[in-house]
């Protein structure tokens, strides 16, 4: 009899573990980094469209955070808004409304601009945040021209850990210098791809047409 009871407990525990594992595996966490440096500040309207798309796509239980990239971005203070949507669809809808309202703050924050662009710091912060959520599918969206500029005191030449995270660069605009020499643009993209892959990212993608975001979240 005791064997039966023990077996039942083991089965229940296994089912519970399987359920927990599955629950985490299906949850999504998205961290959107928005470049607010001077060269990119004009693209904020597009960023708003990306946020709208995410709000319309994410489901109850998923996590969304929006942070700005400025001179030094490895800080929680740079997160403009973050939320994990409730399990109740109606409540989740209310949270989405509130999140959308908070996005006005992003525009306010962007008005100040920043002298430098610390993409690496932002990615480190994003990885830390995403790993804390314990979600099964973690995504960092970088809305930037991917031109990193750091001041002399800031040290970012450090290894990153992006294991299990996919990184998507959105709306990577061409700079004036890229127009002079297109190799600079492709070199910049290749540099980030190499760096991200070396950090253990599960995927690296560049999507310049933000109308095609379903390629990232559709599947």
């Amino acid at each position: 009899m005791s064997r039966v009871v023990r077996l039942t407990f083991v089965l229940v525990a296994l089912i519970g573990l399987a359920a927990c594992g599955d629950k985490q595996a299906h949850q999504r966490a998205v961290y959107l980094l928005v470049d607010t440096s001077g060269t990119y500040a004009g693209e904020l309207d597009k960023a708003q469209r990306v946020i709208n798309y995410l709000l319309g796509t994410l489901n109850p239980g998923d996590t969304l955070a929006v942070a700005r990239v400025k001179s030094r971005s490895f800080s929680e203070k740079d997160i403009v808004a973050k939320t994990t949507f409730a399990k109740d669809p109606l409540q989740a809808n209310n949270q989405k409304h509130a999140f959308k309202a908070k996005m006005a703050l992003l525009k306010e924050a962007a008005k100040a601009g920043s002298a430098y662009t610390d993409i690496t710091g932002g990615m480190l912060q994003a990885a830390e945040f995403l790993n804390e959520t314990g979600a099964g599918r973690k995504t960092i969206l970088i809305f930037s021209d991917m031109q990193e500029e750091l001041d002399q005191k800031t040290i970012r030449d450090i290894p990153m850990n992006l294991t299990g995270i996919r990184v998507v660069a959105l709306n990577v605009t061409k700079l004036n210098t890229d127009n002079v020499d297109p190799r600079r643009y492709s070199g910049r993209i290749e540099f980030w791809e190499k760096r991200v892959r070396e950090a253990g990212a599960s995927e690296w993608r560049v999507i310049n047409d933000i109308e095609r975001l379903e390629r990232v979240f559709g599947g």
């Binding site: 599955d22 489901n59 998923d62 109740d88």
Partner: peptide, 19 residues
């Protein structure tokens, strides 16, 4: 199925990808 998510919670998964 859809309104059930309001009762048992959306985004909760049981083994095998079943919501």
């Amino acid at each position: 199925a859809r309104p059930m998510s309001a009762m048992v919670g959306g985004g909760e998964y049981i083994a095998g990808g079943l919501e």
